[in-house]
C-alpha cells in the first residue's frame, strides 16, 4: 500500500521567556495509507492540532519531514493543496455571509466548479438552509458547513479535526456513514476525534499521540490485540471455591485478581490451560470468557489519562513515550 501521508521526526517547540520551552511535537511520526480511514487520537494538548496545522502549512515546523501525496510539504503545498480538504479545530466562518456565499467564495478562490457547492450542501444536509446567514447556525450546522468546505475540492486526502463536535446523534451517524462512503470511493480520511467509539467503528488504523510523540499506531485490531494482555474472566459453579481456584492459578503462574463473584486473569495465552488446571483439582468453571479491550481503555492506558478518584488531572499530564513515567505540565518539559 502506498502512503498518502508520511511524517517523520516532526518537531515544534514553543519558547517562552516566562515559562521556558515546550515541545509541542517531539519527534512525531505518522503514516497514513491510501484509502484508509485513519484515526488520530490524543489527549488535549498532546499535539494533534499542531500536527495538522503544521501539515497544512499554518505552522512552521522546527524539524522533521512531511510528505503528502508524494510531495514534500510545506515546500510543495501549493501543488497539493487542491487535493487536500481540511477542517482544523472548531469551524470558523464569516458570520454575516450565508453558507452558499461562504462556499461560493471558497470555490471561486480555489477554481472549483460552482456546481460543487450545491453537491456538497446536499451531501452535508444543508441544502434547505444554504441561504441563511452562518451566524444563525448551531454548532452542529457550522460543523456540517466546515465539512462541506473541506469536501468542496473533492480531495484525495480529507483531514477532519473533531468533525462530530456539536452534532446530534443522527448527525454523528450521518457523519460516520459519509466518511465510510468517501473512503469506499477511494478518498483517504484522517480523522481526529475524542469520540473513541466512533473511531473504533469507522477507522481502519489509528495513531495515538501523547505529549508530542507517537505512543501507538497500526490497524485498529492490531492495536487492540497488542493491549488486550490476555485478560480472561472466570466464574465457578460454587462461589465458595474461588479462593482455592485463585491460589491454584497463582501457583500456575497466572496473574489473578479476585472479585466477589468471579476472578479476572491476565497474561493468559490459551484459556484452555485455565480450564484444565481447575478441572484437574475438581473445580468446574461455569464461565470462561476472554475480555475484549476497547479503544477507549487502550487510549487511557497508553496516555495514562484515566481518571483517578480524588485526583484532578491537568492538561498535558500524560504519558511520554520511551518511559513509563507520567509527566506533569507541558511548559518547561
Amino acid at each position: 500500500m502506498s502512503a498518502v501521508l508520511e511524517i517523520e521526526g516532526l518537531r515544534k517547540t514553543y519558547k517562552s521567556r516566562r515559562r521556558g520551552t515546550r515541545n509541542a511535537l517531539d519527534g512525531f511520526d505518522m503514516r497514513v495509507e491510501a484509502g484508509q480511514v485513519h484515526g488520530f487520537l490524543g489527549p488535549n494538548g498532546s499535539g494533534k492540532t499542531t500536527t495538522l496545522r503544521t501539515l497544512l502549512g499554518l505552522i512552521r515546523p522546527d524539524g522533521g519531514r512531511m510528505s503528502v501525496l508524494g510531495h514534500q510539504v510545506p515546500a510543495a503545498l501549493p501543488q497539493v493543496a487542491g487535493q487536500i480538504g481540511a477542517i482544523v479545530e472548531s469551524p470558523q466562518f464569516f458570520p454575516h455571509f450565508t453558507a452558499r456565499d461562504t462556499l461560493d467564495l471558497l470555490a471561486g478562490a480555489g477554481e472549483v466548479p460552482r456546481h460543487r457547492v450545491d453537491e456538497v450542501l446536499e451531501l452535508v444536509g444543508l441544502r434547505d438552509r444554504a441561504g441563511d446567514r452562518v451566524k444563525t447556525y448551531s454548532l452542529g450546522m457550522k460543523q456540517r458547513l466546515a465539512v462541506a468546505s473541506a469536501l468542496l475540492k473533492d480531495p484525495k486526502l480529507l483531514i477532519l479535526d473533531e468533525p462530530a463536535n456539536g452534532l446530534d446523534p443522527g448527525g454523528i451517524r450521518e457523519m460516520r456513514s459519509l466518511v465510510r462512503d468517501l473512503a469506499a470511493n477511494g478518498m483517504t480520511v484522517l480523522l481526529s476525534s475524542h469520540i473513541l467509539g466512533e473511531i473504533q467503528l469507522i477507522c481502519d488504523a489509528v495513531t495515538i499521540i501523547s505529549l508530542g510523540r507517537r505512543v501507538a499506531f497500526g490497524p485498529v485490531d492490531e492495536v487492540l490485540a497488542q493491549h488486550s494482555h490476555g485478560t480472561v474472566r472466570v466464574r465457578l459453579e460454587a462461589v465458595g471455591d474461588l479462593p482455592t481456584a485463585a491460589d491454584l492459578l497463582d501457583r500456575g503462574g497466572i496473574r489473578v485478581t479476585a472479585e466477589p463473584d468471579h476472578l479476572m486473569l491476565s497474561g493468559v495465552d490459551k484459556p484452555a490451560v485455565v480450564s484444565r488446571l481447575l478441572a484437574d483439582q475438581g473445580l468446574y468453571v461455569s464461565e470462561l470468557a476472554p475480555v475484549a479491550v476497547d479503544l477507549e481503555s487502550v487510549f487511557l492506558e497508553l496516555t495514562a489519562t484515566a481518571p483517578v478518584p480524588g485526583q484532578h488531572r491537568q492538561v498535558d499530564q500524560s504519558t511520554k513515550v520511551g518511559g513509563p513515567e507520567v509527566t506533569r505540565g507541558g511548559w518547561g518539559a
Binding site: 501549493p78 493543496a81 487542491g82 487536500i84 482544523v88 470558523q92 478562490a109 480555489g110
Partner: peptide, 9 residues
C-alpha cells in the same frame, strides 16, 4: 485560515 488551506502562498 480557511483561505490559506486553499491558497497556501
Amino acid at each position: 485560515m480557511n483561505l490559506l488551506l486553499w491558497r497556501p502562498k
